[in-house]
Structures are given as C-alpha cells and as structure tokens.
C-alpha cells in the first residue's frame, strides 16, 4: 500500500494555495508535514482525503487514481484522524469507535459482534479499553484523541492521515499520542501527520515534508533536511540544534 502525490496543485478561485507538490508515502513510514500557518497543509490533506476534488495533478493509491475510487473504497485505504472538536451529540466511546467500521457494512446494516470485537481490539490497542462505556464528550482531550485513533484503527485502512492531532493537547498527551502513532507506523501503517512543532517531527517522524509558499521546501530524513536554514525559512525563527542523551533537540534563540 503506498500513496503517491504527483505534481499536485490547488487554488481557491484565483488564489493558488498548493503548487507542484510531489511526494510518496510507503507503509511503515511516518511522514511529518511542516510549514507555517496558512501554507496549505490542511488543503493538501483535504485533497488527499478526497474532500477537495478540484485539484490538478494526481494522487495515486497503489497506482490507482483516487478520483476514480468510490467514497467507500477511499475509506478502505485512508483513515482520517481529525483534531478533537466538540461534536454536536455525545456517543459512547464504543459507538464512536464502531463508526469506524461503517465502511464494512451494507447500507441498512447495523454493527454486529464482529464489528464490536474490532472496536474493542482497537480500543485495547490504544490503551483506552477502560473508557468503552464513557460518553465521548465527557473525556479529556488526550483521551478523545486516543479514541479517534482507535476509530481509525477500526476502519482498517493502511494509511492514517492526521491534521495537527496534538494542537489541543497538553505536553504529556502530545508526546503519548505521537509515541503511539510512531508505534503504529512501525507496525506497518503509513502515517501522514502535520504538526506545528518541528521538534515533534525531529523526534518521531521518519521523514519530513516541509512546505513553504505552497511549494515543497524540503523532503527527506529529519536529521538531513531539518536545518537552521529551513527553520528560519519556515517560521522566521533563529534556532540551534543540540545533541543530548535524549536525542537531537531544537532550541530557539530569543533575543
């Protein structure tokens, strides 16, 4: 299972947002997307998820054009893990995760015990099995994000797309969610994740895609492409790298 984006361009009306973006994502890879606010990370993700069909270029899944695939077929290949938001109506954690299994069901069918088992397994995988009967809206942000990851696992797609999943989480939960995502990647999922924190990309990702001005600014291994120059170009921040016992860290220089 691989995802291949070729010469992708997208514009909202006259306003170009993405220009000539090309990259690919293989199974087992954790690709982190970096870039300043408004650079088009979310637009890129929405194109990949099939929510914005009016793009130029092509997005291929195992060589097949995503535009030709049905919504159901897309959901079989790519699972989306949104930022936590406040849903209009609260469902139990089990029901929330069960929604991930909907693509397996025919139009009028209800989830059966097979789906419930998958949902329970997914909850166990993310360490949230004890939350099964809780109301999703009553959970903490960190717990909610774990449940949404479980929903994506229950969806049984090979690629996980996460748009800034850590932006609403505290320090500890950010690291726990990213650690879990890295584990999932090592188990064979292809992960595409955008983040505002280059340190996260440095610590967790296997590759980095940096966007600047709607174009690819850098693509490659974090230790090779994430440089002082790139951080300055993306964020306008002077920073230095330091090698510590806990790995490489990025320290911003404030004057």
């Amino acid at each position: 299972m691989s995802l291949c984006v070729q010469k992708l361009s997208f514009s909202y009306g006259e306003q170009p947002v993405l220009e000539d973006i090309s990259f690919s994502l293989e199974k087992g890879e954790f690709l982190s997307v970096l870039g300043p606010n408004g650079v088009g990370k979310s637009t890129l993700f929405r194109c990949i998820l099939g929510l914005l069909p009016g793009y130029q270029g092509s997005i291929l899944s195992d060589g097949e054009d995503m535009r030709r695939l049905s919504g159901r077929e897309k959901s079989k290949r790519i699972a989306y893990i949104p930022q936590i938001n406040r849903p209009a109506f609260g469902y139990t954690v089990l029901d929330t995760v069960l929604m991930g299994t909907t693509r397996q069901l025919s139009l009028f069918a209800q989830p059966q015990s097979a789906q419930i088992r998958q949902a329970m397994d997914a909850l166990e995988r993310v360490g949230a099995a004890h939350l099964t009967q809780r109301d999703f809206t009553h959970l903490s942000g960190g717990e909610q994000q774990l449940v949404l990851v479980a929903r994506a696992i229950a969806q049984q797609a090979d690629i996980l797309v996460m748009d800034e999943p850590t932006s609403a989480l505290d320090y500890g939960n950010q690291l726990r969610v990213l650690g879990l995502v890295r584990e999932l990647a090592s188990e064979g999922y292809g992960v595409l994740l955008s983040t505002h924190n280059p340190q996260h990309a440095l610590t967790f990702a296997s590759r980095i895609l940096a966007l600047s001005g709607g174009r690819v600014a850098a693509l490659g291994k974090p230790e090779e492409v994430l440089t002082r120059e790139l951080v300055l170009r993306l964020y306008g921040v002077n920073a230095v790298f330091a090698d510590t016992s806990g790995g490489r860290v990025l320290v911003p220089l404030m004057d």
Binding site: R46, L49, G50, L51, G71, R72, K74, S75, K76, I78, A79, Y80, P82, P87, A88, F89, Y91, D95, M99, G100, T102, R103, L105, L107, F108, A109, Q110, P111, Q155
Partner: peptide, 23 residues
C-alpha cells in the same frame, strides 16, 4: 429506521463522515 446507524455518522459533520465511507 433502516438507515438509523448511518444517520449517527452524519452528526460528525460532512467531511468526517465522508472519510468514514459514507456518501
């Protein structure tokens, strides 16, 4: 009544529901 499971997914909003395979 027949679609009652799928109607649940509509409450997630259009984009989220469609990535879960709902038309």
């Amino acid at each position: 009544l027949l679609l009652r499971w799928r109607i649940n997914l509509l409450t997630l909003g259009e984009e989220e529901a469609s990535t879960l395979g709902v038309n």
